[in-house]
């Protein structure tokens, strides 16, 4: 069974140390995620691709307690076996805050300011039996 990313161009994969792919404004240095053309900060049109940092701190979080509507959601939506998952914004120093799934879903174990690291997690299987993977942040042990 092979692993395929949920999309191309959002994170580096396959990789031993995956990174999110963003943009940096050539004029003002502002960071953006995902890749985009045009800078919302200074209105310059030119941006360049940049790999974002793998570690940051949790800025805020919630727990997705019910199955999202599918589509668009590609993960498990069976109410009997659905497992809540964490969602948060992780502040990457000197860059920006990125929204992400979290590997931890227990409110007792999540706190604003904790150290987080990028990981790749399984989401679902496609019709060929491949495992579809997406990115998440995990607490640093």
């Amino acid at each position: 069974m092979s692993q395929v990313p949920v999309t191309e161009g959002v994170f580096t994969w396959p990789s031993d140390s995956p990174q999110l792919i963003g943009s940096r404004c050539v004029a003002c240095g502002n960071h953006m995620f995902p890749v985009q053309q045009g800078c919302p900060k200074c209105t310059a049109a030119e941006t360049e691709e940049v790999l974002l940092g793998r570690r940051g701190t949790l800025w805020t979080w919630t727990v997705q307690g019910f199955p999202p509507k599918a589509p668009p959601y590609a993960g498990n939506v069976d109410p009997k076996t659905f497992e809540a998952f964490g969602v948060g914004y992780v502040e990457l120093p000197g860059q920006l805050k990125v929204e992400s799934r979290l590997t931890e879903a227990d409110p007792e174990k999540l706190r604003i300011g904790m150290e987080m690291e990028l990981v790749i997690v399984p989401l679902s299987k496609d019709s060929d039996g491949n495992e579809i993977v997406t990115f998440a942040f995990a607490p640093v042990a």
Partner: peptide, 26 residues
């Protein structure tokens, strides 16, 4: 937004409200 965003379980307005008030309470 890209398809990956909804596929990954992030396209819910409810999450934003949970995250904004969680930060605000903090």
């Amino acid at each position: 937004l890209g398809d990956w965003y909804g596929a990954s379980g992030l396209a819910l307005t409810t999450q934003f409200f949970g995250m904004k008030i969680n930060r605000y309470m903090h």
